[in-house]
């Protein structure tokens, strides 16, 4: 009996097929892969322009086969706005970490969300500044030790972590806001479905969309990749609950 091999999973076409610079077990790679899969599946390769951040994903443009620009730290939503305004039919997304988006770039993300223009933001929340060596981020949890909160983050000295998805969902501009987690196969499937909705919110011209991805940073967390996934479930999710915080009519 003749047999053929059916493809269950292969690398996306939008993936440039290079070995990334990310540390072993870092979920940036997972988020990258989901982006590439969706760009393939939704036929967006020819019209995509990605805006990369300053942070671990600064070299993101090396790994994809669509057009890319590299923004200044925190300014990706402004740059994406400039690109989208000049080319409204293109698909424009930013990919930003928590220092980039929630600290130095807070003004840009809030106003991009408030304008509500159809751009998409993939937001990586791993609770620290990974690229610079694990300093405290706006998303660092209370009690969490980082290189700049060596005794653990306290409200008295460092203030409180920011829940970006909930905050932006208060605005009228966004069409789709969700928080997902990249900690397990089931949650990664859900993450992809949320990203699909976010991409669709732009493709269908409905409005601004953002997916916040709870992610790991095994190197700076000083945990193994597997322990890092467990930490997301045990420590991060209780503070940063998963869910859809804004779903405008027509987003699917």
């Amino acid at each position: 009996m003749a047999e053929e091999m059916k493809v269950i999973y292969e690398r996306p076409r939008s993936w440039a097929n290079k070995v990334t610079h990310y540390c072993p077990g870092c979920t940036h790679g997972v988020a990258h892969r989901l982006v590439a899969e969706l760009v393939d599946e939704m036929g967006l390769l020819d019209k995509t322009i990605a805006v990369w951040p300053v942070g671990c994903a600064v070299l993101g443009y090396e790994y994809f086969t669509f057009d890319s620009v590299e923004a200044a730290h925190g300014r990706a939503p402004a740059m994406a706005t400039g690109i989208k305004v000049t080319n409204p039919d293109n698909f424009v997304f930013t990919y930003q970490g928590d220092g980039d988006l929630a600290s130095i770039g807070m003004a840009e993300i809030v106003h991009a969300a408030a304008r509500g223009w159809p751009i998409t933001v993939i937001f990586i929340n791993n609770g620290n500044y990974g690229m610079t060596g694990g300093q405290m981020a706006p998303t660092t949890l209370l009690g969490q030790k980082t290189t700049t909160s060596p005794l653990g983050r306290t409200p008295q000295t460092n203030g409180f972590p920011i829940r970006v998805a909930e905050m932006l969902a208060q605005l009228d501009g966004p069409a789709y806001i969700a928080r997902v987690s990249l900690d397990s196969p089931v949650n990664i499937r859900k993450a992809k479905s949320a990203m699909r909705k976010a991409f669709n919110a732009q493709v269908r011209g409905i409005g601004f969309s953002m997916v916040e991805c709870l992610s790991t940073c095994p190197t700076n967390w000083k945990l193994t990749p597997v322990e890092s996934m467990e930490r997301i479930r045990k420590e991060v999710m209780p503070y940063f609950p998963l869910g859809e915080f804004k779903v405008a009519q027509g987003v699917l």
Binding site: V51, V69, A71, A72, R75, A78, M79, A80, T81, G82, I83, K84, V85, T86, A107, E108, H111
Partner: peptide
């Protein structure tokens, strides 16, 4: 800051 980075994107 945002203006000039929007200019950057359009450029």
């Amino acid at each position: 800051v945002a203006s000039i980075n929007m200019v950057y994107g359009a450029a």
